[in-house]
Design a protein around this nucleic acid. Structure first.
Lengths: 330, 330
DNA sequence: CTGTTAGCGCCTTCAG
DNA sequence: CTGAAGGCGCTAACAG
């Protein structure tokens, strides 16, 4: 691999001069510059960002930790992030946490060891050991998806989105509204969205059967099973179901269809997230739209700001949402 | 940032000794080791992979160039890649080519400047300048998706998959089979799949109207428009349509539905790729299943092999496929 | 078992 | 305008 030293030798100048033309810093005679450029051309020399980073203490790399690769939300957020990172001359290294806190922490440390300039964490929980790990990190971290104490975060307005959607369902005249949520270790999705549902119900003085509130784990199958339990365990069936995730809603729809129930006539369904699937499924799914790309962009912006003006105070951005009424709810 | 030198000082040993316990190489007395470990613990020291890489000339980072972020195929392939990379102790840096050859080349160079150990290119074309860029690279490249000359590649069996599906359509009794393809700069999808369709048609001696073969650009909208053109321009409408991509097929279905045509009764549809959407859309889409995760894994394996046993000859792996008969074709 | 020495490839004072 | 010298954090001979 050809180095700056080789270029200097071939061009008959010092490494310093080569460095200067590389970074267009300081004065270089036109003569020297063109000689250096020519040699670079001929040799196909590519400066080592690695060595440069070691010296300058800036790698121009941002680490991004995803809960899982290859989920629609994660990749849409990553898309937004990559967008601004690329525009600002940063590269992105992706790390997969596979939904495990331990793995999240491990990836944080791994990225730190790579000396990335900053880390974006697509957060799925607020566990104390995670927060600890972030505190002990010497790399700035920005979170998205959960409101992490003391960590600059971009969050979705989970509570109001869920509450709004539930109210919209009620407004359609439904009084028996079922709910499919997820485990509570995911604060944003598991707790906040459920709270939105519960508060909306309480506000209109409706009572609910225990069996109307079921729990899944983000997979379609778990939505299917949750819906099945709801139907089997309830004395009176709900006339509408709100699932905190489109995928859960889709699973629920599958179960309902398998039972020969018509959506929305026998039972209406609403989800949250505006996944691609929600548009294409029949009947199309009423859901809440979150702008994941935008959220990713905002998060990246926030991180880069922090890098430039370090010592800034913690910030928090709450992303808005939009209710999308489609055919699964009338 | 605490360095190996600090640890050495605090533990009262030399940097070499610290390095040795870090890498568990060479002999270190239990006494020295525990002292070092303790200091590392106390200080939260994290060795710089960067400095290590500069010295060892191995970064344990693999670059992956995607045609676009946030498409289902890309992220499924990336998932497979990440899987084996992670298992083997590598990190993945993602680069987005945005479907532009120039950007692909730019990203190749950028990754080279980062001194990644290898590059996986999700290829979308075989343009000469791309091949040139790869040749001039000092980093091993493995391609997936296109059979790049002189480059170790993993490819899908595009020709036979398309031909098989077309034959399956013909076997159902259809004689007027339309086709929606893509631009030919994408050799695998644009040329090979079309050839499969044409050969299958020719083999049974069927003539086709020119208007039955339309072209899109991978988007659903373009599939919609292609289908519209096919219906508007043809003297006799096809009774079945094969689209080289599920997304195109979905777009075509949307157009057909908007015209009030029944699928598959009035016109049957088949796609290729087994996207998630294909399962959920109504009617469910008959398509060809490619195991993208597996392909990603094979590609990563291939690259890592090359890194270990360098100087290996070029290899080429052809991935198999599976026809999935669903409701959009009878 | 341990330390000394010498870089990896680059940038950055500091003198010319 | 240019170069010499030094060092970023780490590992790898080579001596002890």
């Amino acid at each position: 691999m050809v180095t700056i030293r080789d270029i200097a030798g071939l061009a008959g100048v010092s490494r310093t001069t080569v460095s200067r033309v590389l970074n267009s810093s300081g004065y270089v005679s036109e003569q020297a510059r063109s000689r250096v450029m020519q040699v670079i051309e001929e040799t196909g020399y590519v400066p080592s960002e690695q060595a440069k980073a070691l010296r300058t203490k800036k790698s121009n790399v941002i680490g991004v930790i995803l809960p899982r690769m290859s989920t629609e939300t994660a990749s849409r957020v990553a898309d937004g992030i990559e967008n601004v990172l690329n525009r600002e001359g940063y590269q992105m290294v992706l790390a997969n946490a596979n939904l495990k806190v331990e793995k999240e922490i491990e990836q944080l440390k791994l990225l730190e060891s790579r000396r990335v300039d900053g880390i974006i964490l697509l957060a799925t929980n607020k566990e104390e050991k995670l927060l600890d790990a972030i505190r002990n990190l010497s790399v700035p971290v920005v979170a998205i998806g959960q409101d992490l104490p003391d960590v600059t975060s971009v969050v979705y307005d989970d509570y109001h989105a869920a509450r709004d959607m539930t109210e919209a369902i009620l407004k359609k005249g439904h009084t028996r509204v079922g709910f499919i949520g997820v485990y509570e270790s995911d604060h944003a999705v598991g707790i906040l969205r459920k709270q939105g549902y519960k508060d909306a119900m309480k506000a209109v003085g409706l009572t609910t059967e225990d069996s109307w509130a079921q729990q899944g784990d983000f997979t379609g199958e778990s939505g299917y099973e949750a819906m099945k339990r709801m139907m089997n365990e309830s004395a009176e069936h709900p006339s509408a179901v709100f699932a905190v995730t489109d995928r859960l809603a889709l699973g629920a729809m599958e179960y309902l269809k398998s039972r020969g129930l018509e959506i929305p006539d026998h039972i209406a369904v609403a989800g949250l997230g505006n996944s691609e699937l929600s548009r294409y499924v029949t009947p199309s799914l009423t859901t809440v739209d979150y702008d994941y790309e935008e959220a990713g962009m905002r998060t990246a912006d926030l991180l880069l700001e922090r890098l430039n003006r370090s010592g800034e105070k913690r910030e928090k951005i709450v992303m808005g949402y939009r209710l999308l009424f489609r055919d699964s709810l009338i």
